[in-house]
Computed example of a mutant assay.
Amino acid sequence: MAYENTDDGGAAASAGGGAGAEPGVSDSLRTFGAFVQALREHAGLSREEFGDLVRFSKHTVASIEQGRRMPDLDFVERAEAALGNTGALRRAAPHLSRQAGLASWFRQWARVETTAISLYTYECRVVPGLLQTEAYARAVSLDVPPLPDPEELEQRITARLARQELLAVTRKPPTAFSFIVEQAVLERWTGGECVTREQFGRLLELIERNWNVEFQVMPLRQPSHAGMDGPIMLAETPENRWFAYSEGQQNGRLIANSREISLLQQRYAKLRSQALTPEDSLGLLKRLRGAL
């Protein structure tokens, strides 16, 4: 089963999950969510009970039912089993579209990203948008002036969460992800203690469940650092062509020049060697969560 990808499909407001989006609304997501809610209530299940059956949190269930999040394939299949195997959700899922609120400068990258077979991200500002919880995405959106109005805020968060469909291991072929995130970003406590604890839980769940996700932490003390010029995003297309994306304050650009891409690939390779190993990064995450 494949989901529809619109031109603006599922991208975050920006590569790192910041502000400045051009909002959009997806009626198909709202309709699908209302249908899930009706079936759940007909079965006499609370959101928490249903969440236990489909192995998603009650907050994720709420986001899907309210049309704020694109359901991934695991959710659709488990929901079918939990709600009577009518086939209705399975048939409806391919028709979902994502009219996401995303910055105009991000759209070209979003098109590349939705079909990429490899995606590499180094981030020194925030947790990457693909890994954010809803609460973290909300906190980031409210941190950066100007403040969005309530409708725009919801559209922006819907866009960011819908983009996370790309992480699914059931995609054919599944995308191979590499993330390198600065330890300082994790210890910033964006949104406060509760938001941070939930965000750590989300990261641990993804790392341990999604075999296509490699996550590394750049330690606080690293005398040799190849990422001093800022975030790096690299993508490999099904045709094995590479693209990169660079973003700053209220702007960004897609990079197709092979020399520039080669330079960024060299920097990213160096960052991988300088960051903690995936195993040590997992251990650090567990210690950070345990300290909260």
Rank of each mutant, 00 (worst) to 15 (best):
residue 247 E to F: 03
residue 274 Q to N: 09
residue 19 A to S: 15
residue 169 V to D: 10
residue 92 A to P: 00
residue 189 W to T: 01
residue 23 P to K: 05
residue 16 G to S: 10
residue 146 P to T: 10
residue 115 T to I: 08
residue 59 H to S: 10
residue 267 R to M: 08
residue 72 D to C: 03
residue 268 Y to R: 03
residue 150 P to G: 07
residue 60 T to E: 13
residue 88 A to M: 04
residue 9 G to F: 10
residue 151 E to L: 06
residue 176 A to V: 07
residue 214 E to A: 00
residue 141 S to A: 15
residue 12 A to G: 15
residue 144 V to I: 14
residue 86 T to G: 15
residue 181 V to F: 01
residue 75 F to I: 11
residue 89 L to H: 11
residue 81 A to G: 02
residue 158 T to A: 15
residue 115 T to F: 01
residue 70 M to E: 03
residue 196 T to R: 04
residue 26 S to N: 05
residue 210 N to R: 12
residue 90 R to A: 14
residue 259 R to H: 07
residue 37 Q to R: 15
residue 60 T to Y: 14
residue 102 L to A: 13
residue 3 Y to D: 05
residue 287 R to E: 15
residue 148 P to G: 11
residue 129 G to S: 15
residue 94 P to Y: 07
residue 262 S to P: 02
residue 205 E to H: 13
residue 195 V to T: 15
residue 174 P to K: 04
residue 2 A to Y: 08
residue 68 R to N: 06
residue 11 A to K: 02
residue 147 L to H: 10
residue 166 L to H: 03
residue 117 I to F: 02
residue 53 L to T: 12
residue 127 V to E: 07
residue 159 A to I: 01
residue 119 L to Y: 14
residue 173 P to M: 02
residue 220 L to P: 01
residue 233 M to L: 12
residue 224 S to C: 07
residue 96 L to C: 08
residue 208 E to L: 00
residue 76 V to T: 11
residue 118 S to H: 09
residue 279 E to C: 02
residue 246 S to N: 06
residue 194 C to L: 14
residue 292 L to E: 14
residue 280 D to R: 12
residue 129 G to K: 06
residue 142 L to C: 11
residue 103 A to D: 12
residue 72 D to A: 04
residue 239 E to G: 06
residue 235 A to I: 05
residue 207 I to W: 00
residue 139 A to K: 05
residue 270 K to Q: 14
residue 62 A to C: 05
residue 170 T to P: 00
residue 118 S to A: 07
residue 65 E to W: 06
residue 118 S to R: 10
residue 267 R to N: 12
